[in-house]
Simulated scan of single mutants.
Amino acid sequence: MPEDPLPRLRELCTALPETSERLSHGEPTWFVRGKKTFVTYSDHHHDDRLGFWCAAPPGAQEALVAAEPNRFFRPPYVGHRGWLGVYLDVPVDWAEIGEIVTDAYRMIAPETLIARLDEP
Rank of each mutant, 00 (worst) to 15 (best):
S20N: 10
E119I: 03
L113N: 08
P5N: 03
G26M: 11
H25D: 04
R106L: 08
R106F: 01
T29S: 15
P58K: 08
D47C: 13
V32D: 08
P5T: 07
M107K: 06
M107Q: 15
L88W: 10
K36C: 06
A63E: 12
G51I: 09
A66D: 11
T112E: 13
R81M: 12
G51N: 08
A104D: 01
A109K: 06
P57Q: 02
C54Q: 05
V65L: 01
D43Q: 09
F38G: 12
H46M: 04
T40Y: 11
Y87Q: 02
Q61G: 05
T19Y: 10
A15D: 09
T37G: 01
V86Q: 05
A15V: 06
L84S: 02
A104C: 03
S42R: 15
P69E: 04
L84V: 05
W30C: 15
A109D: 05
I108V: 15
F31R: 13
P28D: 05
C54D: 01
R8V: 14
R33P: 11
L50P: 06
D48I: 08
G98V: 08
V101A: 11
D4G: 05
A104Y: 01
Y105S: 05
R116L: 15
Y87G: 01
V32T: 06
L50E: 07
V32L: 11
I97G: 09
I114E: 00
T29R: 11
A55M: 04
S42L: 14
Y41K: 03
V101F: 12
F31G: 04
A56G: 07
L84D: 02
P75E: 00
I100N: 02
P2C: 00
E11S: 15
C13G: 10
R106G: 06
D47T: 09
E99S: 13
G26D: 08
A56T: 00
V92F: 14
E99M: 07
E68G: 04
D43W: 04
D43G: 13
L64S: 01
R33S: 12
I114K: 14
C13N: 08
R33A: 14
F72D: 01
R22A: 13
P58Y: 07
I100H: 05
R49T: 09
V101N: 11
A55K: 09
W94T: 14
G26R: 13
H25Q: 11
R33I: 00
P57F: 03
R74D: 01
K35N: 10
P120T: 08
P28Y: 12
I100E: 00
A60R: 14
P7Y: 09
L117I: 00
R81E: 10
V92R: 06
L113H: 06
W53N: 12
Y105V: 00
R116I: 00
S42C: 15
V65P: 09
P2Y: 03
F31W: 11
F38Y: 10
R10W: 11
P17V: 06
A67F: 01
S20F: 13
I100T: 07
I114T: 07
E18D: 14
F72A: 01
